[in-house]
Design a protein around this nucleic acid. Structure first.
Length: 646
RNA sequence: GCCGCUGUAGCUCAGGGGUAGAGCAGCGCAUUCGUAAUGCGCGGGCCGGGGGUUCAAAUCCCUCCAGCGGCACCA
């Protein structure tokens, strides 16, 4: 007797084990037709799977959110079958469902090109039309290995050995084609909606290891319906419109060029944005009890050897050697590194003079400009660059102060993210890795401090066991942007090691020397990247206080020019960033151009306004407007444009 | 760094062995106009760099560089 509890709470009893398909049929013919899989006690299984004991069961249909994973995984299999039919000799490897779609990795000498996509998609549709039953079979380990070898599938054959010895190996067969897979899958290829599209092809390494052969990965997207597919493609287009590289050019914020790969040329508009953010950050840091410092760009290699960076990261460091021929000939030229991070410099400042426990915690901030040699394939717009400025700070404190400092930091970070327009974020917490420095005692203390600090600050924690740095546990702060993408920006790292290596100490209450603990922390991460994120988050439409040009005063007739100058001067007097547009152009054109430039406020001045000493305010994205007396308008805009912490 | 694709005017893009193209932008002139493109005219190019094939290369081949999409990396 098997008792099946359905989602509505009703219970159905069967004399013997029942398959998902039979269960669905017993409920109704409509459901039997729509059924794609079953969820048994929360776990998705094939429709053909037998339910042999009491369980909570639901039937998965295309309406089910979980069905997407099934559809995408099947799309990957159908893709693989299509590719193998069209390109004999191509080997299969892996093909999982991923966010929004799927991919499959193939081994083939000749490259796939996007031109092949249409052909492959066509064949995929044919395979759907064939409506091949998808059947799960359990195979013996040796048999399957032999089968793969015989069919020239060396990657799959290799993978068999990697599977746990005590587990049954399942293969899924659809028509002539089969793949080793744990499933679950749809009951037949005909159940796969034709709402899929191949999107891109890329290289990848077998098992992700650069030492291994290069495979070709074909990506696709797949949805339950044509409409969902269309919506998704539309979302992609919208995301493309926000691309910071495109908006950066259109809004005249910055540019990049070959002679300075990975470094940004900031134009006046972009630099205004930068300075506005920097000014805001300074105000917040000052209010939070930080001091600000600046440390050298070129630092003798010796210091990096002492700090340990030379050993671990020298591939990523730029070197600078003075052109002193004599010194070079005698091999005594000093080798400098352009600093890749700020911490060793901060420690040098801490070490000047004798520090007392009364000086702690010492919160030392630096807008630190760093250079790192990023691999050529990693450089991307202003998001991943080789020259960047961190909103860095190092807090020197005692072990007992870690928790309070962490709480204060989380509060500060939350305030800043909110002010900059990112109320949504979560925190990744990484604790001790297997190989580490420092005693278990200290780790206990530090981990405990970080965990309770983020709890005290009311943050969502996501655990990353064993992923901490070798020198201490860390928190990483991931914010979510307007279109749902995650960006890791802030970090808080506890460091027991660097103070030791660089011999930093303070005099404690007991008159003895002690090691301070160092907290490395950043909120934005890097200005370059954060500004890139903000551009995409706001789609270029910055809130008034951040907009590089806050207002444009545009005239309709030249009779209003003198008054317009007066208005612009009044806005300037209120410390607003305002520009004048007195061109002999129609107001339609002026509005269009400034709107496309995403200027938040337009002040439209015609003969009427000039005579009545009024201004007509038009806000970006709104057609409604209001007409106010000049003084009233300036006061109002000034209020609206005030930064969160003036 | 790896795989693939791309590189033509400021921008977006067409052309594809035989005189370098369009739209927008720019410049000039006219127009003084009320809420997202006024009209007419004029300029503008080492067709990414280097090498090769050819009577002839933007076009075909090789190579380097850069950008793009992934992979790998991200102290």
């Amino acid at each position: 007797m098997v008792n099946v509890t359905l989602p509505d709470g009703s219970v159905r009893s069967f004399e013997k084990p029942v398959s998902g398909a039979e269960l669905a049929a017993s409920i109704g013919p409509g459901l039997a037709k729509a059924a794609l899989a079953v969820r048994v006690d929360g776990k998705m299984k094939d429709l053909a799977a037998r339910i042999d004991r009491d369980a909570k069961v639901s039937i998965v249909t295309a309406k089910d959110a979980d069905a997407l994973e099934l559809i995408r995984h099947d799309a990957a299999h159908v893709l693989a079958q299509a590719v193998q039919e069209l390109f004999p000799g191509t080997q299969i490897t892996f093909g999982p469902a991923i966010e929004n779609g799927f991919y499959y990795d193939f081994a083939r000498k000749e490259p796939f090109t996007p031109e092949d996509f249409a052909k492959i998609e066509q064949r995929m549709r044919e395979i759907v039309d064939r409506n091949l039953p998808i059947e799960c079979e359990v195979w013996d380990r040796d048999k399957i290995k032999a089968w793969f070898k015989q069919h020239g599938e060396s990657f799959k054959a290799e993978w068999v050995d990697e599977l746990p010895k005590d587990e049954a190996i399942t293969v899924y067969r659809q028509g002539e084609w089969m793949d080793m897979c744990t499933g679950p899958h749809l009951p037949s290829t005909g159940k796969l909606p034709k709402a899929f599209k191949l999107t891109k092809v890329s290289g990848t390494y077998w098992r992700g290891n650069p030492q291994n052969p290069v495979l070709q990965r074909i990506y696709g997207t797949a949805w339950a319906s044509e409409k969902d597919l269309k919506d998704y493609l539309h979302r992609l287009e919208e995301a493309e419109k926000r691309d910071h590289r495109k908006l950066g050019r259109e809004m005249d914020l910055f540019h990049l060029q070959e002679e300075a790969i990975g470094s940004v040329f900031w134009h006046p508009n972009g630099w205004t944005l930068w300075r506005t953010i920097e000014r805001y950050m300074r105000a917040r840091l000052e209010a939070a009890g930080y001091v600000e410092v600046k440390t050298p760009q070129l630092v003798d290699r010796k210091l990096w050897e002492e700090s340990g960076h030379w050993e671990k990261f020298k591939e990523g460091m730029y070197l600078a050697v003075p052109r002193d021929e004599k010194a070079a000939a005698e091999d005594v030229a000093r080798v400098y590194a352009i600093k890749p991070m700020n911490c060793p410099g901060a420690v040098q400042i801490f070490k000047q003079g004798l520090k007392s426990y009364r000086d702690l915690p010492l919160r030392m901030a630096e807008f630190g400009s760093c250079h790192r040699y990023e691999p050529s394939g990693a450089v991307h717009g202003i998001m991943r660059v080789r020259a960047f400025t961190q909103d860095d700070a190092h807090i020197f404190c005692t072990e007992d102060q870690i928790e309070a400092e962490s709480v204060a930091f989380c509060d500060l970070l939350r305030t800043i993210y909110k002010d900059l327009g990112f109320p949504d974020f979560f925190v990744k917490y990484s604790d001790r890795p297997p190989v580490r420095a420092g005693s278990d005692d200290i780790w206990d203390k530090a981990e405990q401090a970080l965990r309770s600090a983020s709890k005290a600050a009311g943050l969502d924690l996501q655990l990353n066991p064993g992923e901490g740095a070798f020198y201490g546990p860390k928190l990483e702060f991931v914010l979510r942007d307007a279109i749902g993408r995650d960006w890791q920006c802030g970090t808080l790292q506890v460091d027991f090691v660097l103070p030791e290596r660089l011999d930093a100490s303070y005099i404690g209450e007991d008159g003895q020397r002690h090691r301070p603990v160092m907290l490395h922390r950043a909120i934005l991460g890097s200005f370059e990247r954060f500004i890139g994120i903000m551009i995409e988050h706001y789609a270029g439409k910055f809130p008034l206080w951040l907009a590089p040009v806050q207002a444009v005063v545009a005239t309709i007739v030249s009779d209003a020019d003198a008054y317009a100058r007066e208005v612009a001067a009044a806005l300037g007097g209120a410390r607003m960033r305002a520009e004048l547009d007195l061109r002999n152009e129609k107001i339609n054109l002026k509005i269009r151009e400034h709107s496309l430039a995403k200027v938040p406020i337009l002040l439209i001045l015609g003969r009427k306004e000039a005579e009545e000493r009024k201004v007509t305010i038009r806000r970006l994205g709104e057609e409604r407007q209001e007409s106010l007396a000049l003084e009233e308008a300036v006061a109002k805009l000034k209020g609206l444009a005030a930064p969160p912490l003036a």
